[in-house]
């Protein structure tokens, strides 16, 4: 019985992998590819690994460790990729509407310029 449930879970997980693969092809820019590609795989890999663990109970502990490591590390890599992609947003043609981070960057740049000017004035 658990073997059947495990096989079913693995099948659903594989379906999510398929969906994320389709998303990877269909989405227009790096950010949205990341949304579809790396994110749909989280539920996909969780279900797949738990399904394998249910089919072979002696592996269940190991697959749970794998799930925990995926859950802990996947967001870190996605965050690094997203930040890098945002740095290159003008070159990869990403459409971001609105882009609060770019606005904040510009505001910070303007603020630092004005303080630099003030310092220069004070220096004179």
């Amino acid at each position: 019985m658990t073997a059947i449930i495990g096989a079913f879970l693995s099948l659903i997980g594989a379906l999510f992998f398929l969906l994320s693969g389709i998303g990877l092809i269909r989405m227009p820019d790096a950010f949205n590819r990341m949304q579809a590609g790396t994110k749909a795989t989280t539920l996909g890999s969780i279900l797949f690994l738990i399904g394998i663990g249910l089919q072979k109970p002696e592996y269940l502990g190991r697959t749970i460790i794998l799930v925990v490591f995926i859950v802990l590390t996947n967001p870190v890599s996605s965050n690094a990729l997203a930040r890098a992609a945002h740095g290159y947003r003008k070159h990869i043609g990403a459409r971001l509407e609105p882009d609060a981070l770019a606005e904040a960057d510009e505001a910070a740049e303007v603020a630092s310029k004005t303080t630099a000017n003030k310092e220069a004035v004070h220096g004179d």
């Binding site: 579809a36 749909a40 859950v71 996947n74 967001p75 996605s78 965050n79």
Partner: peptide, 16 residues
Amino acid sequence: ANSITLTPGTITVEMR
């Protein structure tokens, strides 16, 4: 931040 990133549709880009 990890929870926001793990739920599809949202990715944390930066924290300030």
